[in-house]
């Protein structure tokens, strides 16, 4: 029997009086690509940030690969097994693309520079921006920056990739180049949790869709079923609204 890679147990998170996550319990199996969607303020990004404890949760726990994050003393070590991609890329502007990618392998895993660069070389080729290696982040287009950020997250060979609205800050014509890279990752069996409003990606690439509202998981379904036959009224409303837009 396969064990879940991520197990979230009774997780709660507040920002002052605002309840971001309300007693959420859910787990994710290795090798699956799950899209988390819902209206803004529903807690999707908060949930994602709890999975690598960038957010200190109040109650409950996250078990990643058999380790409790709440009790973890070596959180940095655990985080190095979880890649994360952000809405605004968050590449380090003072480092070249190459150095952005090699920084963590060199200082977290102690890989020597040559080896780290050889690896980065392969990753840049994979995301299609090998020719941009020596440039600095702000010299790249948004789509290229996000692909570089994906390469940076992959450099530590993570078991899990978290995507926090990876295409929301991009111009429309650059969205597809980023989605293409994500699609390839999913095809190659990477475990992925993706917060996104790209319903096309959710329908075509994701194995499952999780719908959240007001800090709770309202519905979880395989992606086909979610779109064709949503169970909750709230999800129905949401799907109607986002699909109408197109």
């Amino acid at each position: 029997m396969t064990l879940p890679l991520v197990q979230i147990n009774n997780l709660s998170l507040r920002y002052g009086d605002f309840v971001a996550l309300d007693d959420v319990s859910i787990d994710f199996m290795p090798g699956t690509c799950v899209v988390i969607c819902g209206p803004s303020g529903s807690g999707k990004s908060s949930l994602l940030r709890c999975v690598n404890r960038l957010e200190n949760f109040d109650k409950g726990d996250v078990i990643f690969d058999g380790q409790s994050l709440k009790a973890a003393q070596n959180i940095s070590k655990i985080r190095s097994n979880i890649g994360m991609v952000f809405q605004h890329f968050e590449l380090y502007p003072h480092l070249s693309v190459m150095n952005n990618i090699t920084l963590a392998p060199r200082y977290v895993n102690g890989v020597n520079r040559d080896e780290a660069e050889a690896k980065a070389h392969k990753l840049l080729e994979r995301v299609g921006i090998l020719d941009q290696a020596k440039k600095y982040p702000n010299e790249l287009s948004g789509g290229q920056q996000q692909r570089a950020a994906i390469a940076r997250a992959l450099a530590l060979e993570p078991k899990l990739m978290l995507f926090d609205e990876p295409t929301s800050a991009l111009d429309p014509e650059m969205i597809s180049e980023v989605l293409q890279v994500m699609r390839d990752l999913a095809r190659n069996g990477m475990t992925m949790l993706v917060v996104t409003h790209e319903m096309g990606f959710a329908r075509d690439v994701a194995d499952e869709v999780v719908f959240m509202d007001k800090g709770k998981v309202i519905e979880r379904n395989e992606s086909g079923g979610f779109f064709d036959n949503p169970q909750s009224d709230r999800a129905k409303e949401f799907i109607d609204r986002v699909l109408q837009k197109i």
């Binding site: 960038l54 940095s76 979880i82 952000f86 605004h88």
Partner: peptide, 25 residues
């Protein structure tokens, strides 16, 4: 703040984050 989050998410410790990312920037 995202620069801190990005650095932490790759497994850099607080000291490494300041040393390699925040202070040079």
């Amino acid at each position: 703040k995202g620069q801190f989050l990005a650095a932490y998410s790759t497994g850099l410790t607080e000291v490494q984050t300041f040393r390699h990312v925040i202070i040079p920037y």
